[in-house]
Design a protein around this nucleic acid. Structure first.
Lengths: 203, 203
DNA sequence: CTGTCGCTTGCACAGTGTGCAACATTGCTC
DNA sequence: GAGCAATGTTGCACACTGTGCAAGCGACAG
C-alpha cells in the first residue's frame, strides 16, 4: 500500500506507548529527510543518511516508508488528514459543499501566517519533479475517504456515486492548485488563496 | 523532466527519419512493457526484459524513459495529448467550457467501443498502486498547457490566472474520476461516462 | 521470572538509474 | 557517392534502493 489507512490507534490522542513511539519515529524520519534536503539539496539525500539522522537503521526506514519519496511528502499527508478530520467533525446534516467550505475556513484560520522557514522548505521540495507524482498520490490517498464523507451528506439521487467522487476530487484539486499557485505568487497569504480557490469551484 | 514537452518535430506527421524512428522505439518499448505485464504480471517485469523484447539495450531504455513506470503510462500520456490537440483545434473564440465539452465529445465519439482486450490490460495496470503516482503525473504533465489554452479563451478579469488553472485542473480531474469509475462499473461504456462526468463539473 | 509478541537490525541479493567513453548510424555538404 | 559532424546506441562500472530472512532485543502480560 502506498499510503496505508491510518489505524484506529493513530487517530486517538493517546494509544499505548508502542503506537506513540512508532508515530514519533515516523515523524522523526520525515523531519530528518526534510532537514537534510534543505541542507544538502534534495538529490544528494540518501536513505542511509536519513536513517542515520533519525538514529535508526536503513532497514528500519523501509519499515516505515516504502520509498524515500514517501518520507518527504509525509508532512503533506498529515496536513490533509487534519483537514479531513475537520470535515468529518462538521454537523452531520450539513450539505457537502457548505461542510467543505466551513472546514477549509477553520483549517486556514490559524495557519494564515505560516512559518516562513517551513514555507521555504516546502517550496524547495515542490520544485523537484521526481517528487511531484508522490505529492499527487497524497491527495489521491484521501480522495476515496473524502468521497465517502461527501456521499454521507448527499441525498442519493441519480449518479450519487459519481457525483460524490467528483465533489471530493474537485475539492482536493482546488486545494492543490491553490498550493501550487502560492509557489508562483508568494505575495498572497496561502490561506486566503485556498479559500478563494475552493470558493471558485464550489457548486 | 518527468514528461518532456513534445517536440515540434513530434507534432508533425512526418518529420525526418530520425524522429520517426525514435517515436517508433518509444512506442515499441511501451508496448513491450504492457505486453510483458499482462503475460507475467506487473511485478515480475524488469527493465531488462522490456528492453530485450524491444530489441534494445537496457541503457537505451533509460534514454527514452526515466523510469520503468513512465514506460507503462506512456500510452495514457499520448491519449491525453490527442485530446489536448482536439481542444486546441476548436475555434479560437469559443469559450473554455464549450470548447472542452465539444473536444470531449469528438474524442469519445469514435472510441466508445474500445478494444475490450486493451481495456482489460489497462484495468490490470491501474490496479497496481505503485503505478498510481505516475498515472496522476500524466495528468499533471498536461495541466499547465491546458491552462494556457483555457486562458487564451477567457476574457481576463480578476483572478484570470487562478481561474484558468482551476478550469483546466477540474476538467482533467473529471476525466480521471470517470476513468477510475469505469474500472468499478465496467457496465457503462466509458465514453458516455466521461461525457457525463465532464458535464457535471462544467461551470 | 518467563514466555511471547512485535520491533529492529544486519546481511545478502536482485534491480534501477546514470556518467562515461567507445562505437554505429544518420543525414548534410560537397 | 565520400567525408564529416551530429546524434543515437551500447557496455561497463558504480552507487543506491527495496525486500526476504533470520537473529537479536526489549516490552509487557500472566
Amino acid at each position: 500500500m502506498l499510503f496505508p489507512a491510518r489505524t484506529l490507534a493513530g487517530v486517538a490522542g493517546t494509544a499505548g506507548l508502542r503506537e506513540r513511539k512508532k508515530a514519533a519515529t515516523r515523524q522523526a524520519l520525515h523531519e530528518a529527510a526534510v532537514r537534510l534536503a534543505t541542507r544538502d539539496g534534495y538529490d544528494h539525500v540518501t536513505v542511509e543518511a536519513i536513517a542515520d539522522a533519525a538514529t535508526v537503521s536503513r532497514r528500519t526506514f523501509s519499515n516505515y516508508f516504502s520509498s524515500k519519496e514517501e518520507a518527504f511528502v509525509y508532512g503533506d499527508l498529515e496536513r490533509i488528514r487534519r483537514l479531513l478530520d475537520l470535515v468529518h467533525d462538521r454537523p452531520p446534516r450539513e450539505k457537502p459543499w457548505p461542510a467543505l467550505l466551513r472546514a477549509v475556513e477553520e483549517f486556514t484560520a490559524g495557519s494564515d501566517g505560516l512559518d516562513p522557514e517551513e514555507l521555504a522548505e516546502r517550496r524547495e521540495l515542490r520544485r523537484h519533479p521526481s517528487l511531484l507524482p508522490y505529492q499527487l498520490a497524497v491527495y489521491a490517498a484521501v480522495e476515496r475517504d473524502l468521497a465517502a464523507e461527501v456521499a454521507r451528506r448527499m441525498d442519493g439521487g441519480p449518479d450519487a456515486l459519481l457525483r460524490s467522487r467528483l465533489i471530493a476530487a474537485t475539492f482536493l484539486t482546488a486545494l492543490r492548485v491553490a498550493t501550487q499557485q502560492s509557489l508562483d505568487e508568494p505575495a498572497e497569504p496561502i490561506g486566503a488563496l485556498i479559500r478563494r480557490s475552493v470558493a471558485l469551484v464550489a457548486g
